[in-house]
Design a protein around this nucleic acid. Structure first.
Length: 223
DNA sequence: ACATTAAGTGATT
DNA sequence: AATCACTTAATGT
């Protein structure tokens, strides 16, 4: 069976872990089933979990770690979408796997990340046998939909300075640190704008005392 | 000290 | 907000 990942470090799934991380799923029987049917994959920090254009053969559920999800357009431009945390699932991949479509997004592990992979062949069965699964899927899909809508009006209606601040806050949150390592160029790439714009906006934020700038590092100041 | 890379800036569209 | 054409500052060798 082909998996969408290059690194195949599969292990039996620890039920206790699934039970603990997915408090959002009340049905213990379902979680037992998930542990039986799924495989565990450990992705090292920085690895791509899913690349645009790859087919998805299973639905990933994050057991631990953090994942950055971003879109990539035809010209190779990146656009940051959202972060995924433990206990969450990527609704995009669910839809992709259902419709047998290639992934339209890329996902990268920010730190070592454990992923529970559920083969899509089981989706039908789980849906029918476990109402809790159905509710979980609908719920995560709804959550992602909200995220997406937020991202859309970020782009369409908000100015870049809002987007930048939003990005900085989310990134700081994902890293558990107020200090964001990286260059202005990298941020510009993620937000699909130019380095000069980011530099200027960061300068403004610094003047407002919201941020402290140094080479390769941006420190967010708490309000 | 020199080269390289990141960041800052003014002008133009 | 994007792009260009620079300058200045920080860092590595």
């Amino acid at each position: 069976m082909a998996y969408h990942c290059t690194k195949d470090l599969k292990m039996p799934v620890d039920f206790e872990k699934v039970n603990q991380k997915f408090g959002a799923i009340p049905d213990t029987e379902l979680k037992k089933k998930m542990s039986e049917v799924g495989t565990l994959e450990v992705v090292p920090a920085g690895e791509l979990i899913m690349d645009a254009g790859s087919y998805i053969k299973s639905m990933p559920l994050i057991l631990s770690g953090k994942v950055k999800v971003f879109r990539e357009d035809e010209d190779g431009n990146e656009l940051f979408l959202y972060y995924l945390y433990a206990g969450e699932a990527c609704a995009v991949s669910l839809i992709c796997s259902f419709s047998q479509k290639k992934s339209q997004v890329r996902a990268q592990a920010l730190e070592e990340t454990e992923i529970l992979l559920l083969p899509i062949d089981y989706m039908d069965k789980l849906m029918r046998e476990f109402p809790a699964w159905y509710r979980f899927v609908v719920k995560t899909y709804g959550e992602r939909m909200d995220e997406m809508l937020e991202t859309i009006d970020n782009i369409a209606f908000r100015r870049m300075d809002d987007r930048l601040l939003d990005y900085l806050e989310k990134t700081a949150d994902a890293l558990n640190s107020n200090k964001i390592k990286g260059t202005h160029q990298e941020i510009a790439y993620e937000l699909n704008t130019s380095r000069e714009v980011i530099s200027r906006l960061l300068k403004q934020l610094e003047k407002k005392g919201m941020v402290k700038l140094s080479r390769n590092q941006i420190e967010l100041i708490q309000e």
